[in-house]
Simulated scan of single mutants.
Amino acid sequence: MTTDTELRGELLAELHRLRRAVPELTGCLVASTDGLLIVDDAETVVVEGVAALAAACLGVSQRIADSAGHEDFQEVLISSTGGHVAMYLAGNGAVLVLLAGAEANVARLHHEARRSIAVVSRVVATAALTFSQALPEPARW
């Protein structure tokens, strides 16, 4: 059985790969869709706050897409004079958040993030399976 530490290590390795592939990234993290931080590779940012806000933004964005009659919500990009925040739905229950400087190539950011979503989705699904296998059997009366 894969341990929690091994799964977090796999996620962290993917975040490190992203930072190497897109040097303009100032941070990246994976959070649950409930807003809890799972793992991060970020500097100078309160990652727990970003995780919570990203989950809230993702939830609102999904509802907007649903209300507009669009299916299969995927991502949100926030651009400001200071840079970009990109959030991607990663499987069932996780969000990948990328923080980048204003000079970042957004197309490259999306391209690399979409590669990472497959890894994050797989690891999060494995973690959910591992967790469910670790639960004690219900009492039989």
Rank of each mutant, 00 (worst) to 15 (best):
G93D: 13
G27W: 13
R19Y: 03
H70V: 09
A13I: 06
R17V: 01
H111I: 04
F131A: 14
E112T: 01
L15K: 11
W141D: 12
L12S: 10
E112Q: 06
V47P: 00
L109G: 09
C28K: 05
R19S: 14
C28E: 13
V95Y: 08
R19E: 10
A107C: 06
D4Q: 12
L58A: 04
A113V: 06
S116A: 04
E24T: 15
L36E: 11
A68H: 12
M87A: 09
R122T: 12
T81L: 01
W141Q: 06
L96A: 01
I117C: 03
R63Q: 04
I78S: 05
V106T: 15
T5L: 12
L109D: 10
V119R: 01
A31K: 03
I64K: 00
L58D: 07
N92S: 13
A52D: 08
T26S: 10
S116I: 00
R122F: 09
P23Y: 14
L99D: 06
C57T: 14
L29D: 04
A94I: 05
E10Q: 13
A107G: 15
S79E: 15
A113F: 07
L37C: 10
A125I: 07
I64T: 05
A125C: 07
T2Y: 14
E71C: 03
P136Y: 00
E75N: 05
A55H: 10
E43S: 13
I38G: 01
E10M: 09
T5W: 11
R115C: 00
S67Y: 07
A54R: 12
A118F: 04
Y88L: 05
S61A: 15
V97Y: 07
L37I: 12
D40C: 00
G91C: 10
Q74N: 11
L96R: 00
G83L: 07
L96Q: 03
V50L: 07
R114Q: 05
A127D: 14
S32Y: 11
L77K: 08
L15G: 07
V119Q: 00
S32N: 08
I117R: 02
S79W: 10
E43G: 05
T44R: 09
A100D: 12
A107K: 08
A65K: 05
E48W: 11
M87G: 02
N92G: 05
L7V: 04
S132F: 13
V60C: 01
A102M: 03
V97S: 05
A118S: 04
R140A: 14
S61K: 02
A90P: 05
A118H: 05
E103D: 15
I38F: 03
F131R: 11
A113Y: 06
G83W: 09
S79I: 10
D72H: 10
S67E: 11
D40A: 01
L11E: 00
R19D: 07
H110E: 09
D72N: 07
G101I: 02
L18F: 08
E24L: 08
N105I: 08
H70L: 15
G49M: 08
A104G: 02
